[in-house]
Design a protein around this nucleic acid. Structure first.
Length: 413
DNA sequence: TCTGGGGTCCTTTTCCTT
DNA sequence: TCTGAAGGAAAAGGACCC
């Protein structure tokens, strides 16, 4: 018997957030709708406008529209009708309001999306158990050993999964099936929405090489720009470059990876389980805050963030060792500071103390736009060398740097 | 009135030890 | 004792992704 050919699928839900919202508000179908914000306070306010009423009571004219929105925030996703106006993900809401003032603005509702996310993933694992979670709306699936996974290059199984998801949730998705994750990810974009596309190994030149380098998952705007300065626009052109040139130009790791990727090679397995590396909370303020003048408000937000991360850690059963902060200034530049403790912790007070030490090492001359707190080097709480925190006497042992640099900058918070 | 929030991973810099 | 090289770990910054 021949060994089965490796068949990896990438499945991507179509306009996931927007589609979930349309299930809930079918009266919005065909209209320009943007889902935006992500800034908690404003989202709450928006939700209140909609909340507590039966669907048929909410007339189209009652939905909040972009032109009435004031404040900070960006679009998370937009319906196809809204995209016609040039508004889409990551666009500032204020800018979007100029392009399409009549667009309906819905607040993001992660709880709802997570619910549908779990639902479609459960449908998949019932059919094909080897599934890798890649966020709310994306997964990789190993078709290789699944019954029917080889038929028509994976098309039959892809169609089965698509249909099961649609029948049980009303949502559509796009699937790409290829010899590996890299190609499967690209393939799932070929035929959107609600499409399937199959890429075979021998189709590399015809289907992959003509594509722009940006289509490779992992080549972002920066890498693309650098490639362009060397006259490389397509994956095919990238594939013409010798390995040693790529390594010289992009460094050992990236160079070798670019070489492999351009030749359609990717040996990464489908990983069904993984442990988190860090957890964080951050918030952008309604207005830029001054370290001295707004000290009280800032201190309050800072403490809240620490408490939230601590609660997240405890709820999920993790403790961490490296405590870090992130500051974004009014010029949008960011800095981070972190320090590693002697013991793992998930205690809010301990995190707050350590984060406070980090803050003292940061320059605080500009006004602040964002503040974040992160805990890294996580391990599961049950097998960690947790310092017993039940007494207020628990010491925090800091790395050496803190006091030194306070003395140097004279800054305090 | 530009530009969210939660992550991972990689590279470079810095500091410490041998 | 001084100096430097080498290597590791931690810190900082950034690119990228959903």
């Amino acid at each position: 018997m021949k060994p089965p050919i490796r068949r990896i699928a990438h499945l991507d839900m179509d306009a996931f957030y927007a589609s979930v919202e349309l299930l809930r508000y079918p009266q919005l179908k065909g209209l320009p709708v943007v889902i935006g914000g992500g800034r908690r306070a404003q989202d709450e306010a928006l939700r209140e406008q909609l909340g507590g009423r039966a669907l048929h009571e909410i007339g189209i004219s009652e939905f909040p529209v972009l032109k009435d929105y004031t404040g900070r925030g960006v679009i998370t996703t937009a319906t196809y009708a809204a995209r016609q106006f040039g508004v889409g993900s990551a666009l500032g809401l204020m800018k979007a309001a100029k392009l399409c003032p009549q667009a309906i603005l819905l607040p993001v509702d992660f709880a709802e999306y997570r619910h549908y996310s779990r639902a479609f993933k459960a449908i998949i694992t019932d059919i094909a158990p080897l599934m890798e979670d890649r966020g709310v709306d994306e997964v990789y699936i190993d078709f290789t050993e699944v019954p029917g996974g080889q038929r028509e290059g994976g098309r039959v199984l892809a169609r089965l999964i698509q249909k099961a998801i649609f029948d049980q949730t009303g949502l559509t998705c796009s699937v790409g099936v290829a010899p590996n994750k890299l190609l499967a990810k690209m393939a799932s974009e070929f035929n959107k929405p609600n499409g399937i596309s199959i890429v075979q190994e021998e189709e590399l030149e015809g289907k992959i090489w003509p594509l722009a380098c940006r289509k490779i998952n992992g080549i972002g705007p920066k890498a693309d720009e650098k490639l362009q300065t060397h006259g490389i626009q397509t994956i095919g052109q990238l594939a013409q470059r010798p390995l040693d040139w790529l390594v010289r130009t992009f460094g050992n790791k990236t160079g070798a990876w670019l070489f492999e990727a351009s030749h359609g090679r990717d040996a990464r397995p489908v990983v069904t389980e993984s442990e988190p590396v860090s957890m964080s909370r951050e918030t952008t303020f309604d207005r830029d805050l001054h370290a001295v003048r707004d000290k009280a408000e800032l201190g309050q937000i800072f403490t809240t963030l620490c408490e939230q991360v601590a609660a997240d850690l405890q709820r999920k059963g993790y403790v961490g060792k490296t405590i870090g902060i992130k500051l974004r200034f009014d010029d949008f530049k960011s800095v981070t500071r972190d320090l590693t403790l002697a013991h793992h912790t998930s205690d809010a007070k301990t995190i707050r103390q350590a984060a406070g030490q980090c803050l003292k090492r940061a320059p605080l001359t500009r006004r602040l736009r964002l503040l974040g707190v992160r805990v890294g080097a996580l391990v599961r709480a049950e097998h960690a060398d947790v310092y017993k925190q039940n007494k207020a006497t628990a010491p925090v042992e800091y790395a050496q740097a803190a006091t030194k640099s306070i003395a140097k900058t004279g800054q305090l918070f």
